[in-house]
Nucleic acid binder design. Structure first.
Lengths: 227, 227
DNA sequence: ACTATTCTTCATAATATCTTCATAACTTCT
DNA sequence: AGAAGTTATGAAGATATTATGAAGAATAGT
């Protein structure tokens, strides 16, 4: 059974963003937009971890934690809007296992998730290795092999490649990919992706001038070859 | 602390054979040649797993299990001389976790050991001696040799190096490494790792300015060289 | 309680990466 | 072929991350 993560936040955009990349990371994701719904889902789905926004209407994160913790010890990662110490202290006192301040990048969230899962003795998500043709990408060890040659990628290059390889043949718009890199920290300029792709190609393509792995789809975006 | 295995058999030859092999695999091994001695050693050493011969003079395997299980739930693998169902059934009923019939090949035994340890949630055996290139790290004696020169490491430096060397090429995040040092303690500050790494490099790297063993992976963490 | 060692924090210097921008190259459409 | 729009590319500035020295805090040993 895949590791299940419950994401609780009233902001639709944030929820779907988090859901998208956690799914891509190999987690099973269920979502709730308020505390009551979350309590219900937690009972039903028995998630391995909960990602919880503190600021929610109706029932806030603290209240949810209090109620949930009466029955379960599920590890919880808090999403806090501000960087004030108050949040940290209160949240951790109530039994949260870690916290991430908004805005955050996907990479930061998944790093914390993995750390918490390891700390609480859960299993890693299953699909940690992506293998397409000659390219092997291992999320856990954060290594990429082309043929039998390791290549060093920057964080952005690595995340882009992981996204593309997660669904070979699927076209990702630059906006999709930008979300992937920047998450809720959204200030980006789509052309940035072009540059990352160029640099990535320079590292993994035998002939970067006519790419074999990462193809351009004119007017739409990029995709990993499906062959 | 290395995973400890208690081997109980009255055949000296078999015991030393198994002992040698398991030691080579990175386990810590203690041995007993009869039931009484085994009970004593089990109390004293608190082994993570017991390998037990059924056929022994004085106190046989079944009797040992009965007495031992009054106090402990240590997983037990039985060594049975014959392939008869009787042994299997009785043994497993008494609470053995697996059994291996003699004669057996070393690799079969270790495979079963690992399977049982995994099943019962024990930690994988951590090889006592890690040897990568010019660096030799011995967990038991807590010593590190670079070339033929012993170097003195602080506890933190030693643990960091051991973690990194346990999976060369794998990138460890600062959070990962902090957990190794501090366990579940929470107040850790990731930058602390940087300093330990710097100090570690100063002790093991020929040229700490351009490290050969402990590499930095920008934006992610550190790894031991995979070459 | 004192000393020596180790650990952590902090400030700043050194690097690597990311983003932007200008321009060249390419695609598509007419 | 030409026009319009899109993508590729090299380079430079902005940003983020890591390395480092040093000082204070914590810990262990005597």
């Amino acid at each position: 059974m895949a590791t299940t993560i419950l994401v609780v936040d009233d902001e639709k955009r944030l929820v779907s963003l988090v859901e998208a990349y956690l799914a891509q990371e190999g987690f099973r994701v269920v979502t709730a937009s308020n505390g009551r719904e979350a309590l219900f889902l937690a009972r039903q789905e028995k998630p391995d971890l909960i990602i919880l926004d503190i600021m929610m209407p109706e029932m806030d994160g603290y209240e949810f934690m209090r109620l949930h913790r009466k029955e379960y010890q599920t590890p919880i990662i808090l999403l806090t809007a501000r960087v004030e110490d108050d949040d940290k202290i209160i949240g951790l006192e109530l039994g949260a296992d870690d916290y991430v301040t908004k805005p955050f990048r996907p990479r930061e969230l998944t790093a914390r998730i993995r750390a918490v899962l390891r700390r609480t003795g859960q299993t890693e998500p299953t699909a940690t290795v992506l293998r397409r043709g000659d390219i092997i990408l291992d999320r856990e060890s954060h290594t990429v092999k082309v043929g039998n040659q390791f290549v060093d990628l920057t964080p952005s290059e690595f995340d882009l490649l992981a996204a593309l390889m997660s669904s070979p043949g699927k076209v990702f718009s630059r906006l999709d990919l930008l979300d992937r890199l920047q998450g809720t920290r959204y200030e980006g300029y789509e052309r940035t992706i072009d540059v990352h792709i160029k640099n990535l190609r320079g590292k993994i393509e035998p002939d970067p001038r006519s790419p074999h792995y990462v193809k351009t789809v004119y007017g739409v975006g990029y995709r990993f070859t499906r062959d």
